[in-house]
Design a protein around this nucleic acid. Structure first.
Lengths: 225, 225
DNA sequence: CTAATCGGTTAACACTAGTTAACACTAGTT
DNA sequence: AACTAGTGTTAACTAGTGTTAACCGATTAG
């Protein structure tokens, strides 16, 4: 099994080198980038498994970079390195979907512990990312809905909505929760858009009629299977 | 309650033994078979609750075995262990109706997570609450009221009200209790709304005239059946 | 016996959700 | 650049759900 690739974006050369070498003694393959733009390129060419991003960087700061990368992969674990200790920064990091942050100065041990935690967590998650609903199986990362020998590609929206329905199956999935999570707001138009997607999913799930998406008026939807 | 029986088919003795012992520490009863034919016999004689099948096995490979077992039981969860990482294999596993697959090498944690996921899923299905009232059956999770060969979808409110009536059948169900539970308050309007629902349920239950929803003036309702 | 109250029933209503299609926009292809 | 296909949003219309109102009968307290 090959080494785990970690992308490290850190503009201060000395610190970057120290972290890189420390991680390499722990058998990680570290891709060191000195600014946000280089990091973006390396991310796209080398497909690392985890990101360690300095927040304060030239060209492109860590948060912006994370936002852009999240457009491609919304599960990859990200650790932010921040000199500022303000809570505001931390909050921003998390809302982008960052998984952890580390305040400078930090010990190498701290960083390694967090890296291992995140890797374990996401690997366990990935192993259970093939979901089952009635006679269907749903491969969330691939966005494929399988039934017997047929397989159908879902769109990003369809897949995420279905994912949450399955994760909350046999219980009510709150409308406004899902609207905020997937659409980013809870207004009239997003709600109607969501209704359209529910219709689509119902059609795609109608091969097994033990599966139903029930509406709970005013609250949300319940996937029964 | 007895231990959950898991059939493990793995031809490599050392690996088979490791998996068996690991699962036994988690309180599973593991039936280890060294090839596909033995696994088939064990399946028929011991009725395990879940299958973990190596794909590459002598005598009979995992996919063929799964196909044959699916002829007897098309709901038993199956986890395939595969050394090959090719997508083709995975697809074939799913088209047989297999529920999950695991690429070697895998961690024991991964396997255990998947086993528990699959077991929970099938067990939840089996314990779904189907209630009986006279000649009707009422599937509460699906909100369906069945009579002979007809089936009717109930709304969320209807279903919950009926559920409580059935749970308290042949005894008085307190008005204010149900109002607080379903409507969240006990005011005039909610009470009148509830009356409307009682009327609706009476209509929907009138195919079996041994069933009656009786009013106990000032106290509540009593479902007789 | 009568008035007051409670519950039964039906229909009108407001609101929510379902469905379909048109549309704008993006991305991929020729 | 033009064409095509796909995705998600918006719009328009329809259907369904639950609340409220109105009217009625039944029961009970005075």
């Amino acid at each position: 099994m090959s080494k785990t690739k970690i992308l490290l974006a850190e503009d201060e050369p000395a610190l970057g080198q120290i972290i890189k070498e420390s991680l390499e003694t722990r058998d990680f393959n570290v891709l060191l980038c000195s600014d946000g733009e280089k990091a973006m390129h390396t991310y796209q060419s080398d497909a690392p498994e985890l990101l360690v991003l300095d927040v304060m960087m030239p060209k492109k700061d860590g948060f912006t970079l994370a936002k852009e990368i999240r457009a491609f992969d919304d599960t990859i674990p990200i650790i932010f390195l921040t000199a500022k200790s303000q809570t505001q920064d931390v909050v921003e990091g998390f809302t982008i979907g960052g998984n952890d942050y580390l305040k400078k100065p930090f010990s190498m041990e701290e960083l390694i512990v967090r890296i291992n935690n995140l890797l374990n967590r996401t690997r366990i998650q990935k192993t259970s990312e093939i979901l089952h609903i009635g006679a269907y199986t749903f491969d969330f990362p691939k966005q494929r809905l399988n039934f017997n020998n047929t397989s159908e590609q879902l769109t990003h929206r369809e897949a995420h909505l279905l994912f949450h329905l399955i994760k909350n199956k046999n219980q009510v999935l709150d409308r406004s929760l899902i609207l905020n999570k997937l659409w980013g707001n809870d207004d009239f138009f997003s709600a109607r858009s969501m209704d359209v997607f529910i219709t689509k999913l119902r059609k795609k799930l109608n091969k097994d009629n033990s599966i139903q998406i029930l509406n709970v008026r005013g609250f949300g939807y319940k996937l029964i299977c």
